[in-house]
Write a protein that binds this DNA or RNA. Structure first.
Ligand code: NAD
Ligand code: NAD
Lengths: 219, 219
DNA sequence: TTCCACTTGTGAACGATTTCACAAGCAGGG
DNA sequence: CCCTGCTTGTGAAATCGTTCACAAGTGGAA
């Protein structure tokens, strides 16, 4: 199915563009389900709240496979995006912290459908260690390195309290992990070759709060 | 305590800067707890993974109250940031969807400490409506408008399944709400004067996945 | 075959954000 | 008092991302 791998400019796709790829892919999958075979940049743009030029510029990082006058083949574009986003492999994910956020994430099925399999869960609460979350046994914090290696983990989700986050990721990085998704309100320090994304609900709320006060003042 | 309100350039602070303000504030509160009275831009920068120049440029949007040779007063800067982020008022928040993510968010205390009070919870599951989440009664979806008005809601958190999100926020917007924090994987369409932030774990994971495949290919 | 309506791909203009570089200000010591 | 070491505040430069504008393909209709 994938002879699309003729991607040229793997060079350095802007981060903002990569994030939009995720969204485009989401829409394309909707279109595919609806039996639509081809989309124009304008359609994707409208769906995603950007402009047609933006969509075309984004996609041009991947080569050129649109058909002028017609648009893009939904199937082909889906394939290319899945490929560039690395969604054709299964990623083995370890969850650190089986608390409220951790369990909510664990039980969220769409991750699995996307190829992110949570194969490891770590916690240090003696009441939790040894019990099962879904099909996965919760292992103690001291087993961290061993679990990451055994389970051939690719990616770690941090959902432990902020004060312990840095110490844990240090060990995670030492164990060879190259990608971390962090939910703790802590600014993690990692080597440059480890990819890190922070999800901070506080930052989002506070930026909304700022927007609200601005609106209020301007009237 | 706040005669810092002499803020000049409320003009148009870049979004990226506002988000960093949240982080700076977080660090400043740590410093305050540790009894540190003043910080230099370089210290904040190191803590937050940016550069000293970036920190100073950011803060310059708020006026100038650093002391050359010394740095910034922790207390004063904390006050200014809290003010510009609108954290000195209490924000009344409505939570739409008391599912897994919704309840995890609800039970997260730091929000309340920051001045975000979840005063309204809406769900449409008959088994949930009428029960309490923490101290708040879960109300039916049909009561949405009425609840938002009665509770004088400022801000709405969307934690319902994607397919119903748009319809709900349409009603929320019609009820006069100007700020929405969206967890559903749906691209919401709102009027320009409503502030929207999306939190998408899928986008984050996929961008990590992209980073991982890049690393792998480059060796 | 030619024409037409449509849409892509992309250099170039634009706008925004980040980084640089340095004059100016402050505190403390002599 | 002046000198020294340190740090801010900020124009100007560099970088990065978005938007514009249009030549060049494409399929279909006549
Ligand atoms: N709940 C939310 O809505 C929310 C929102 C934003 C951020 N967060 C952040 O996510 C993280 C988790 O939040 P939560 O609400 O799930 O908290 P929680 O207390 O419910 O869960 C934390 C879990 O981590 C485990 N843990 C603690 N120390 C550990 C260690 N050293 N090794 C392994 N496991 C350890 C605890 O046993 C617990 O199960 C926190 O950093 C929090 O700030 C949560
Ligand atoms: N759980 C996660 O980790 C996670 C991660 C990313 C995104 N999300 C998104 O967050 C949203 C909620 O996820 P969840 O895991 O909590 O799902 P969930 O099914 O546990 O909760 C959804 C809740 O919304 C309620 N609901 C449904 N329709 C409603 C309506 N019309 N009005 C009011 N309430 C309604 C349901 O009764 C349920 O309580 C989804 O959009 C999901 O995609 C969840």
């Amino acid at each position: 199915m994938n002879d699309f791998t003729s991607r040229v400019a793997d060079a350095k796709i802007p981060d903002a563009t990569v994030r939009r790829f995720s969204l485009y892919l989401r829409y394309l999958e909707d279109f595919e389900r609806s039996g639509i075979n081809s989309v124009a940049s304008g359609v994707l743009a409208e769906r995603g709240g950007t402009t047609a030029a933006q969509v075309r510029k984004d996609l041009s990082f991947l080569g050129s496979f649109g058909k002028r006058g017609l648009g893009y083949s939904v199937r082909e574009l889906t394939g290319v995006l899945r490929d560039v986003l690395g969604l054709d492999s299964v990623w083995r994910v370890a969850l650190l912290g089986a608390g409220r956020i951790g369990t909510a994430l664990f039980r969220y099925e769409p991750f699995r459908a996307r190829g992110f399999h949570i194969t490891t869960v770590i916690d240090n609460d003696p009441g939790k260690v040894g019990t099962r979350l879904g099909g996965v046994m919760i292992r103690g914090e001291h087993e961290l390195e061993c679990a990451l290696t055994e389970d051939r983990t690719d990616l770690v989700i941090v959902a432990v309290p902020a004060p312990v986050a840095q110490a844990l990721v240090d060990r995670v990085v030492a164990a060879g992990i190259r990608a971390v998704l962090n939910y703790a309100p802590a600014q993690l320090r990692l080597p440059d070759d480890v990819a890190l994304r922070n999800v901070s609900m506080t930052v989002e709320l506070e930026s909304l709060s700022h927007a609200l006060t601005r609106v209020r003042r301007c009237r």
